[in-house]
Nucleic acid binder design. Structure first.
Lengths: 233, 233
DNA sequence: ATCGTCATAGTGGTCGGACCACTCGGCTGA
DNA sequence: TCAGCCGAGTGGTCCGACCACTATGACGAT
């Protein structure tokens, strides 16, 4: 009886902290398999139910991944794994907070596009062009949205910061854009959007960071202003 | 027997989605109390155990809050509630990803400081000055760190975007800064840090957004470069 | 009548055990 | 040799019991 000293908070919360600590201290490497639920529960002196809740919480945070019949694994702890939760924020935000999120996206997207203008490779530029033309060659809103997302995703990747790309991905989650875009596009903003995308692409081709920054900021800013006006009255 | 049709994924995952949907559709308002675990489980036709895991997951994401003996409540869904998880990302990131996070912080912090320069009120400016002088009047690293955090937090708040402030808060989580700052300050960077803070403050006083942006970017960039050099060899 | 006290019902927290669904490696047999 | 089977082991689900805490209202002292 030398352990179980602290006794602070719920046992589940304690288990969460302990597993997080194991990862932070390097005792658990990314991709590594954890002991079984039953083992872990026994080690920490708690029931399997409580341990399962702890694991479920860390799974929701993108830290752990459970594979039925196989075991529990630490994720690669890549940006994408951990920042998927960012999409939840976007999905559940409404009203003024939606504008704040767009403002953040404007800041990050403009910088990412500027970085991409300086660093983008011919290959990546080709992919960007592919999505640009595909976007202009269809009238299906769903398809346009898909290529729009891919267009910006490729640019974010070209910026060379995976974490930044993951955050922007979350800020452009399907449901988020669907909610905002729907109303925006209903006002016949297709042409304007196409021009803006073309401007961004041109800046990338000429490797002009400042022009890219301005074009991207204007692009997101347009939607931002529209959304702001919708909330004003 | 008209429901329970989809049958996709685990029952817990389904429960999570359903509760999220209830909130997204407005059937559950922020701050509102949910039915009891036993009720919810019965409604969705699952066991209490599975429902508890779903609730635990949403609790970890900052969407729900459980109060022992009282009930389960939807959080205010404020930026702070949902973005607390950002701290987990910062805590578990290492190596190159740490640099990426600092790069993101540089982007956001410089913009936030620029916005603050234009919008900060005399009251807020007073608070900023308080932390600046307190930071310079002590040698206790812990106290310096605390006032350093408060200094930047106040500036972020003055920028007028709560979501942005919450993200920066997460990117400056105690453990994150403790890990990076320790090594940085050991190299006698105190004086440089003080000069940089003074420059930021001066730009705020003169309401000069461009100077503020440059000062903040340089401030974070210094640490960023130091960290990059640490990983290079 | 007022206020503090305390029993109590109801809530989330924890536990243990049972069984199901799935994975994976080794065994079996053609 | 290899395809197929099969069983041990794993996470997924369910159940029922009990504990710890909160909130409410009845009760009694003042």
């Amino acid at each position: 009886m030398e352990e179980t000293a602290p006794q602070k908070g719920t046992v589940t919360q304690r288990a969460i902290e302990q597993i997080k600590a194991m990862i932070a201290e390097g005792r658990l490497e990314p991709g590594q398999r954890l002991p079984t639920e039953r083992d872990l529960a026994a080690r920490l002196g708690i029931s399997r139910s409580s341990m399962r809740e702890a694991i479920r919480a860390l799974t929701a945070l993108g830290v752990l991944e459970a594979r039925h019949g196989s075991g529990i694994y630490v994720t690669q702890l890549q940006a994408g794994d951990l920042l998927e939760t960012f999409g939840v924020v976007a999905d559940l935000s409404r009203g003024p907070r939606l504008v704040e999120l767009l403002e953040i996206r404007r800041i990050l997207e403009s910088t990412a596009t500027a970085l991409a203008a300086a660093r983008i490779t011919p290959d990546q530029l080709g992919t960007v062009e592919k999505h640009l033309t595909a976007m202009n060659d269809t009238d299906d809103p769903e398809e346009i949205l898909a290529h729009d997302l891919a267009f910006h995703r490729e640019i974010a990747l070209a910026a060379g910061n995976e974490t930044l790309a993951a955050i922007l991905e979350g800020l452009s989650s399907r449901t988020f854009r669907a909610r905002v875009w729907r109303g925006y596009q209903e006002e016949g903003a297709f042409d304007r959007t196409r021009r803006e995308h073309t401007a961004i692409h041109r800046a990338l081709v000429t490797h002009d960071p400042e022009a890219a920054r301005a074009a991207a900021a204007a692009h997101v800013g347009e939607v931002e202003e529209w959304l702001r006006s919708q909330l004003a009255p």
